[in-house]
Amino acid sequence: MLEQQLVNALTLGSVYALFSLGFTLVFGVLEVINLSHGAMFMAGSFAALTVVTRLKAPLAVGILAAMLVSGLLGLAIDALILKRLRARHAPHLIPMIATIGATTVLTSAAQGLFGVEVQRFPDELLPTREFIFGSVHVRALELAIVGIAFLLMTTLFLVLRHTRQGRALRAIAESPKAAALLGINVEGLFLATSFTAAALGGVAGLLIGLNFNSVTPLMGQPILHKGIAVVILGGMGDIRGALFGGLFLGFAEVLSKAYLSSQMGDAVAFGLLFLILLVRPAGLFGRVLERKA
């Protein structure tokens, strides 16, 4: 039935949007396709799981742990790898290849530390309440997921729009050189962007981990591909585009799985992505950018 599917689609779509927001932020500011964003997603999920099961901390602490661990990993990748490549003015594809290497390292480390089997959050920690609106059952968990995702996204929008740092960041996105001439601490904001984006990715990982109650070292790969689809759908580096693209992909995927074919849902997303790239390389909602790279 349609209403129930729409609830699922909204839940999934808001997490896709949250994930893609960080991905597109890094592209907009650093001009790097950061393929380690999926690993941040996975790391956030494992960080929260570890804190919750080993330290018996409440779920709220788990969310903070996800943000912190993923954020620091993102920061480390930027400081250790991307920063050097920026200093060398390496062509666009080089940092992308380096982030593939970082992903391999992190995934392999997670497999070594946690094993390859699916891990689950303890049931007693998850909110069990269900709200019933007419014929639609909404789990409290789903409400929380949508709530957290939108809370974080709104915060990011407000920060980018109204704070000094946000304006500085947008200036960098236009032109890092001009921003540096205006006395903006470009390197510092690059690092801050990498931290924020990775932290958002980590929370998205935790939310998906909770929603399906499954955490594995390889969970970052499919979402990374979807993040790429979303970002291209919305226009690379376009923050609002990531929000709409994420929701759109959530709906497209859930509805095509429900009404077309359960396995072909993923193909729909990528088929769409492929077509959009051919017709409008700047994205569905994106202005027609000059093609960089």
């Binding site: 396709i33 666009h92 594809l93 992308m96 591909h225 790429i228 689809a229 291209i232 690379m236 990528f270 088929g271 992505l273 492929f274 790239l277 051919l278 390389p281 093609r291 960089k292 790279a293």
Partner: peptide, 13 residues
């Protein structure tokens, strides 16, 4: 017709 990262993404898709 796509270049650079866009081509990489399209071929990935």
């Amino acid at each position: 017709r796509l270049s650079g990262v866009y081509l990489a993404m399209a071929t990935l898709a």
